[in-house]
């Protein structure tokens, strides 16, 4: 039996625009994943604590306020501190092209921008997910 892939979808920072996050969460559920949705106004600390407790394989971050350069890398950093660098972090939202490369360098493995079809996110997850058999 294949281990179910678990994904945390979280909104770091203070913006309350959760349309995208909810859409992704629901679409990933429909694609057969176990999705843990934490709601808005999460701190990097609470996102990482959740990721570890829930033993997720992926953390998807959604942010529209422009605070991604500060908050996304902080999540990756904290995961590392907790010895959980195997958890894959990806992000989405209003993120300018020029920010993508620096974010990737800091360990955010994919950035999905507005207009990205959900199939792109699923392809990413499928290409990265662990294939530990039971």
């Amino acid at each position: 039996m294949e281990r179910k892939t678990r994904i945390e979808i979280a909104k770091p920072g203070l913006d309350g625009h959760d349309r995208g996050a909810k859409y992704i969460a629901r679409a990933l559920k429909d694609a057969g994943y176990e999705v843990i949705y934490t709601g808005i106004r999460q701190t990097p600390e609470s996102i990482v604590a959740t990721a570890i407790q829930e033993d997720v394989d992926f953390v998807g971050l959604s942010l529209l306020s422009g605070a991604h350069n500060e908050l996304f890398p902080r999540v990756v950093e904290l995961l590392k501190t907790e010895g959980a660098e195997d958890i894959i972090v990806f992000g989405g939202g209003v993120i300018p092209e020029e920010d993508i490369e620096p974010l990737t360098k800091k360990g955010i493995q994919a950035i999905f921008r507005p207009g990205t079809p959900i199939s792109a996110v699923i392809d990413f997850i499928e290409s990265k997910k662990k294939t530990t058999a039971a």
Binding site: A25, K29, D30, E34, T38, E45, S46, A49, T50, Q53
Partner: peptide, 22 residues
């Protein structure tokens, strides 16, 4: 509960307990 059709699930209960996350 998970979806009987896709096997996927959207788990949101912890949302209301999230102040204790850390």
């Amino acid at each position: 509960p998970s979806s009987p059709f896709t096997g996927g699930s959207l788990l949101g209960d912890r949302l209301r307990m999230q102040t204790h996350a850390t």
